[in-house]
Computed example of a mutant assay.
Amino acid sequence: MENPDEIAERIGRGEAFLKQNTKVLGGVLAAAVILIGGILFFQINNQNQNEKAQAEMFQAVYFFEQDSIDFALNGDGINKGFLTIVEDYPRTDAANLAHFYIGSIYLSQKNFQDALTHLEDFSSDDYLVQSKAVSLVGDANLELGNVDKAIASYTKAASTNENKYTTPKYLAKLAVAQEEAGKVADAIATYAEIEEKYYESFEYAAARKHKARLEGLAAK
């Protein structure tokens, strides 16, 4: 047990400290309250904005699925398009998804630089969707002549959540980019991977054909 006099002395020093620093402590407490309140407000506001954006984006998604691309991008005069969603509701999940749609549309329109910009602004926790987006980034880079970047994107897409449905597709794209970069041995190895691992895939027959073609070229 501590000495009662010592305890009283410590309490006294504590009370003196509080009296001397009341304004400082009050300021710190007020700042903490403001900070916590600001964080809560931001989270609630962002959630409300996201819900509103998702509701307004519904029609744009419908236009996209119906191949009404101009309406999907720019709206129909009544409903908002993806471009307006991105502008009006930044930092929301809806805007993030809108970037994916916009990038896909621009890619189909051969507007490769803008497609790349929007696709790189998209991210998803869904492995299949994310690998699809990464593959589209590869497509845009390949069209822009950024072959090494395309190879990196296709490699990442193919290695993300490997499966028998999407992986052989991304490997086939990777092999094309590798051949375009003059990396024939790498392309042969990629086609061989499709041949060995994904013999039930749609890409299997083409992979065998192109592998044989490249092996013939390499033997000359």
Rank of each mutant, 00 (worst) to 15 (best):
A152K: 13
A205V: 12
S135D: 05
A219Q: 09
K211H: 02
D126Q: 15
T166Y: 09
Y106V: 04
I39M: 13
N48R: 15
L40S: 11
K169S: 12
V61Q: 13
T190W: 07
I7Y: 00
S108F: 00
A140L: 03
H99R: 02
V129C: 02
A140H: 07
K209P: 03
N50V: 11
A150S: 01
N50S: 11
D67I: 08
G27E: 03
K156L: 14
T160V: 02
A31N: 02
P90M: 05
L73V: 04
E193R: 15
L116H: 10
K132P: 01
K52N: 02
A157R: 06
D114E: 15
A53T: 08
D67W: 08
H118S: 12
A150G: 00
D139R: 09
S159A: 15
A60R: 11
T166R: 14
S108Y: 02
K132T: 09
K149S: 14
N163L: 06
D148W: 07
Q47T: 14
G14P: 00
L73D: 00
D93I: 07
K110L: 10
V61N: 06
H118P: 03
V137C: 09
V33I: 14
K19Y: 06
L83Y: 02
K19M: 08
A175D: 09
E143M: 14
F58V: 04
A157H: 03
K132L: 14
G12K: 09
I102E: 01
V184E: 06
N96K: 06
K132Q: 14
F17C: 00
E200I: 11
G26W: 10
V184D: 04
G216D: 12
R10L: 12
L128W: 11
K19W: 04
F112A: 12
N79S: 07
K52P: 00
Y170T: 03
L40A: 13
E143W: 01
E6L: 07
G77D: 01
G103E: 00
H99Q: 06
K164T: 10
Q109G: 05
Q59L: 12
D93F: 05
